[in-house]
Amino acid sequence: MTEAKSYSKLGEALAKGEFILTGELEPEKTCDLSHTIEEAKQMAPYVIAANVTDSPLGIVTINSMAATHLIQKATGLECVWQMTVRDVNKLGIAGMIMGAQALGIHNILSLTGDHTAMGDLPESKPVFDLDSATLIKLVREMVDKGSINGHEIEDPPKLHVGGAANPNSNPMEPEILKIGRKAEAGCEFIQTQVVYDLDRTIEFLTGIRKYKVPILLGIFPMKSYGIAKGFDTFVPGVSVPKEILAKWKSVKKDVTDKKQQKELYDQYNYDLFKPFIGELKRKKLIDGIHCMAVHYPRIFPKLNDIIRG
């Protein structure tokens, strides 16, 4: 952190250098947030904050700022408002940042967002007036200087802003240099894309460590074989290693008792991520874990054990 000031629990923990755990909440296509709120309650004792997604894959869901506010209000769990530059121009986003402050939101994750053409309203106009780096810069100007484009804001917002990074990126060098741009823009924390390949991850994290931005490693514990297989098939650029898929498949095939199945999946996730995270932590390449597995809140006690261990 370049500033000693903290506006949120997440900001404070990062400033103190605590090894932290964050989660992710993905509202579905409904105006009723009760499911998401239920998940938030279950993960709340274990995480410092949880991201709230902004229409991932360009598939329309409830506005992420509204959802962030409502989840925080209903659960007391601090959230990280994910904001993509896909749908709103600079003027609109600046207004939303002020709105977020007024609604008690103090963390924002700046994202490009999946292209409109990929989602369920493909004929929408893709905006991309800002990009993920210049949104970070805008937030930092509003917060640190209390101005927008040099125009003073009477009561400026107080938010911490983070960005994303993809260790799976190939070629890797432009992605590393891009993180340098985000750092220059004032990025206060990085959350990575989900990783499974330890060597690549080490190479990438070593490459971006010089920018001195706290790094939260993105992981995806797999709740079932179906989820693991789906993730492997449908998430471009990330593949689940074959031996892991085989192990998960064996649970589905060989274990009939549902309760036992669940316990095994949970245990396998623990066995998979404990050494992975341990190694990166030992190498001082990460400052925390960001768990992106949505709808799997029962895994958090195990993840908590890992990060405390």
């Binding site: 490009t112 990009d131 993920s132 190939n170």
Partner: peptide
């Protein structure tokens, strides 16, 4: 760039190709 970004590549890039 399909998003006309000023600071790419974005996370939609896989093996040098564009998500769009």
């Amino acid at each position: 760039c399909a998003k006309a970004l000023m600071n790419g590549p974005c996370g939609g890039m896989v093996e040098g190709m564009c998500e769009v």
